[in-house]
Amino acid sequence: MKLTHLNQSGEAHMVDVTDKQVTQREARAEAFVTMAPATLALILSGQHHKGDVFATARIAGIMAAKKTADLIPLCHPLALTRVEVEIEPQPAHNRVHIRTLCKLSGKTGVEMEALTAASVAALTIYDMCKAVQKDMVIEQLRLVEKRGGKSGHFQLAPDAGEPA
């Protein structure tokens, strides 16, 4: 398999997408933030002194998706047409499940945007709650699905599992 971000001399470069076809593209990613039951209860009660943790994380994830090309070297700046960040508390597992979706019509995929949105949403939850708990764990940041482009459809295997 050839790494597309390396030229013939092995040097990093931005992939030329000039001649690629514009297609509908979308990607979904996820991450989990595990925390103490008391930390999650504080967030869910709305009593956190920094305000609405999930709303702030959702906005941060959307903003991050739009800034991916500024954060990840060699990513193309993209005109995203949709970014969703869903945050679902899972009290039975003392965690939060973050799911993202990025879409566009373009010449290159949106996997990095979906992953960036999920990671920054998770980091924002951590940042807002670190005064309460410093040992929260961000885990299982991963691509769940992608559609469009030459490589076609990818979907995470159903048995890929969630964090324990």
Rank of each mutant, 00 (worst) to 15 (best):
M1G: 15
L3Y: 13
H5F: 07
L6K: 10
Q8E: 15
S9D: 15
G10V: 11
E11C: 08
A12V: 12
H13P: 02
V17K: 08
V17Q: 04
T18N: 10
K20H: 07
Q21D: 13
T23I: 07
Q24S: 11
Q24L: 09
Q24Y: 15
E26Y: 06
E26M: 13
A29L: 11
E30A: 13
T34F: 13
M35K: 04
A36K: 15
A36S: 15
P37N: 07
P37F: 05
A38C: 02
A41Q: 04
L42P: 05
L42V: 12
L44Y: 07
L44W: 05
D52F: 09
D52R: 06
F54E: 08
A55L: 12
A55Q: 13
T56W: 05
R58A: 10
I59Q: 10
G61K: 04
I62Y: 06
I62V: 15
M63G: 14
A65V: 00
K66E: 12
K67I: 01
A69I: 02
A69Y: 04
P73A: 01
H76Y: 09
P77A: 02
L78H: 00
L78E: 01
A79Q: 14
A79D: 11
T81N: 01
V83H: 01
E84Y: 03
E84N: 15
V85K: 07
I87E: 08
P89K: 02
P89C: 05
Q90Y: 00
P91E: 09
N94V: 07
H97G: 04
R99K: 15
R99W: 11
T100G: 02
L101C: 14
C102L: 00
K103V: 05
K107Q: 15
V110N: 01
E111F: 02
E111V: 04
L115N: 00
A118D: 03
A118Q: 10
V120R: 02
V120G: 02
V120F: 06
V120I: 15
A121I: 12
A122I: 05
A122H: 08
T124I: 05
T124G: 11
I125E: 11
D127Q: 05
C129V: 08
A131K: 08
V132H: 07
Q133I: 03
K134M: 04
D135K: 07
V137Q: 12
I138C: 03
I138S: 03
I138H: 00
I138A: 08
L141K: 06
L141Y: 07
R142I: 06
V144P: 03
R147H: 14
R147N: 15
G149Q: 00
G149W: 01
G149K: 01
K150H: 04
G152D: 09
H153W: 09
L156A: 06
A160Q: 12
G161C: 14
G161N: 14
E162N: 12
P163D: 09
A164D: 14
